[in-house]
């Protein structure tokens, strides 16, 4: 909303892939007259509108809320998951970040566990399966006590919230040199491990989720912290440390 929004032209090199079986290739497009107040996805909208008018297949990309919370969007732009701006999802990345004439290489999040389905769209159902392996507290609807019967130390509640603010976008996997999902999984494990409500299933949860994470074929963490740098919600790698500790503890003390 800066008073005089500038228009810029960009060269795009975009990954095109028809479906999961297709090999895929890069195609080159011009994005012209892009308003710098537009978001990155709105820039892609403009390019797609142009492609449609030329009778070409528009670039497929995932997106939904466009306010940085649903976790649906994401691509790697010039080697940055979600683009070069820290703590920003692609939909919240505005074109004022880029300059006139710049070339943008746009690729899908790459991981064997998150296969490309079309163009920039990847299959993140691996995350759902990790959650189904223990990322919950087993309480039946209605069979619970009064909310204020469970006091939670404010510090723990805040840390749990910070972990829970993960939007499941998979940028951590995309940015990790090893395509590891440790930040995502550890954020989920930590969220519940930090709360008194999460204690009864603490061991079972971390063991189940880590096992599923490994089964999905994600890489291993080598403590490079690229995930934290790329995370649009700034989730801390302290969560990974917490999960490492919890995992070893659970493995050697629980009977699971």
């Amino acid at each position: 909303m800066s008073n005089a929004a500038k228009k810029i032209n960009l060269n795009l090199k975009v990954w095109r892939q028809k479906n999961a079986e297709d090999k895929g290739y890069f195609d080159v497009y011009k994005a012209e007259g892009i308003d710098q107040d537009a978001s990155f996805l709105e820039m892609l909208d403009v390019v797609n509108e142009g492609l449609s008018k030329q009778g070409k297949d528009p670039i497929a990309f995932d997106h939904d809320c466009r306010e940085g919370i649903c976790g649906m969007c994401g691509a790697v732009v010039n080697g940055h998951a979600h683009g070069p701006k820290a703590k920003t999802t692609l939909c919240q990345l505005h074109m004022r970040t880029f300059s006139n004439g710049q070339t943008l290489v746009i690729e899908p999040f790459r991981s064997r566990a998150l296969p490309v389905q079309k163009d920039l769209i990847v299959d993140r159902s691996a995350f759902d399966r990790v959650i189904a392996s223990g990322g919950f507290i087993s309480v039946r609807t209605g069979s619970v006590q009064d909310a204020n019967n469970i006091p939670v130390e404010k510090k723990s509640a805040d840390l749990a919230f910070d972990a829970a603010s993960c939007i499941g976008c998979a940028a951590c996997v995309a940015a990790c040199p090893n395509a590891s999902a440790m930040l995502f999984v550890s954020a989920k494990v930590s969220h519940l491990a930090l709360l008194p409500q999460g204690q009864p299933e603490r061991s079972r949860r971390v063991l189940g989720m880590v096992e599923q994470m490994d089964t999905e074929g994600f890489g291993n963490c080598s403590n490079e912290y690229q995930c934290e740098a790329a995370c649009p919600k700034g989730i801390s790698v302290q969560n990974i440390a917490r999960m490492n500790r919890d995992y070893a503890h659970a493995r050697f003390t629980s009977e699971d």
Binding site: V139, D158, F161
Partner: peptide, 20 residues
């Protein structure tokens, strides 16, 4: 609803006393 959500681990804002 609030009871249910808290039991599920929804991290609602809390006061220093630990209550909601």
């Amino acid at each position: 609803i609030v009871d249910q959500c808290v039991a599920q681990g929804v991290p609602f804002a809390r006061e220093y006393g630990g209550l909601l």
